[in-house]
């Protein structure tokens, strides 16, 4: 069951503060990294929603993210729509595709669910890779960012865009937290805990699962639209199953089923990868070893471990513990 504990609130506020401070103190490349973290955090939150709370471990969130990016790109570049309509299209596209996957795969569990999502994700990848309409393997260039100059915001400025993505990541967190506290979220957790019982209670389980997966996909689609605007370019690589794998790494690293952990995991993975890559071309190995160590050490992840220790120690201020792994150390 999800509770927005004071520890979680404190951690979110701390991470948000760290992001803002970082945005105003770092250089151009730091802003690139911050934007990447904020965007990936949204997909990681989306993934934690279904994997951590709904028990639906997905290997297609990279594909949902990519579908969102392509939806934004096609709406703005091919159809000539505005940025706002493009964002809506991305959310709808990611959501619809995810709902479909969720509805079709609702009967499968465990490794079979993972494989089903993998299959659907790879189908989407293969489709975009071969599709001349969307630029095939070369992808689609020429994507413009949302025009918020009416509100006095210049998103073409790196800092402006990084902060914009950070705000959206915060909103995504708030949305996910609200959803999980609602009756819908409680039912979702109930299905994970005991699906036959929920079914016996007369609940249309598949419809619930599909709705949850669709919501998650809509969030992933939103992140995809942000990624498309960040790079101003989309390519099929976004949809590859290894991207989904890396997203799962983020969620596990930060702490599955904690929501805050998803954000933390995105930050830690991006910054660790970057720091390691400065010293060696073999960063794959370091990331792999970190992942193995995380799972072996109990699998709670960073924030899960913090919550665990916090629970044992009783009530104290959350700040000292929550700073670990926040992006401001880089």
């Amino acid at each position: 069951m999800f509770h927005q504990t004071p520890l979680k609130t404190g951690a979110v506020l701390l991470l948000a503060t760290a992001a803002v401070v970082y945005a105003f103190t770092t250089g151009f490349f730091g802003l690139e990294l911050l934007t990447e973290v904020a965007i990936l955090a949204i997909v990681a939150i989306a993934l934690d929603l279904v994997a951590g709370y709904g028990g639906m471990v997905s290997l297609c969130h990279g594909a949902l993210y990519g579908v969102g990016a392509y939806a934004f790109a096609s709406a703005t570049v091919l159809l000539g729509w505005g940025g706002g309509a493009g964002m809506a299209m991305a959310v709808a596209g990611g959501g619809a595709f995810a709902w479909l996957i969720g509805a079709v795969s609702a009967r499968t569990h465990g490794i079979f669910f993972i494989m089903a999502t993998l299959a659907f994700g790879q189908m989407a990848y293969a489709y975009f890779f071969d599709s001349p309409l969307f630029g095939g393997s070369d992808g689609m260039p020429g994507i413009a960012r949302l025009d918020l100059s009416g509100a006095g915001l210049d998103l073409n400025d790196s800092r402006g865009y990084a902060l914009f993505c950070t705000v959206l990541a915060l909103l995504a967190y708030a949305l996910a937290a609200t959803l999980l506290r609602s009756g819908f979220g409680r039912t979702l957790v109930g299905i994970r805990a005991n699906e036959p019982r929920m079914r016996a209670l007369g609940l249309p389980v598949w419809r619930h699962k599909a709705a949850a997966f669709g919501t998650s996909g809509a969030l992933a689609g939103l992140a995809g639209a942000l990624a498309a605007q960040h790079t101003m370019y989309v390519s099929p690589g976004l949809l590859h199953w290894t991207v989904s794998g890396e997203l799962l790494i983020m969620v596990i690293l930060g702490g599955l089923g904690t929501l805050v952990g998803a954000v933390l995991g995105a930050g830690v993975l991006v910054f660790v990868k970057h720091e390691v890559a400065r010293f060696t071309d073999h960063w794959h190995m370091v990331v792999g070893l970190v992942l193995i160590a995380t799972v072996l050490s109990g699998g709670r992840g960073i924030f899960g471990q913090i919550e665990f220790l916090w629970g044992r120690r009783g009530a104290r201020r959350p700040e000292p513990a929550a700073t670990e792994g926040s992006p401001d150390h880089a």
Binding site: G27, F28, F29, E32, L33, E36, S137, D138, G139, S158, A227, H230, T231, M232, Y233, S235, G237, L238
Partner: peptide, 28 residues
């Protein structure tokens, strides 16, 4: 990876202020 390539390009041009860029293996 195209997105990584673009992020690094921005770093080289905006932060490192390089005079010229060299490389690029993949057309993507």
């Amino acid at each position: 990876k195209p997105p990584v390539g673009l992020a690094k390009t921005r770093k080289l041009i905006l932060q490192d202020q390089v005079d010229v860029m060299v490389g690029i293996v993949s057309s993507g």
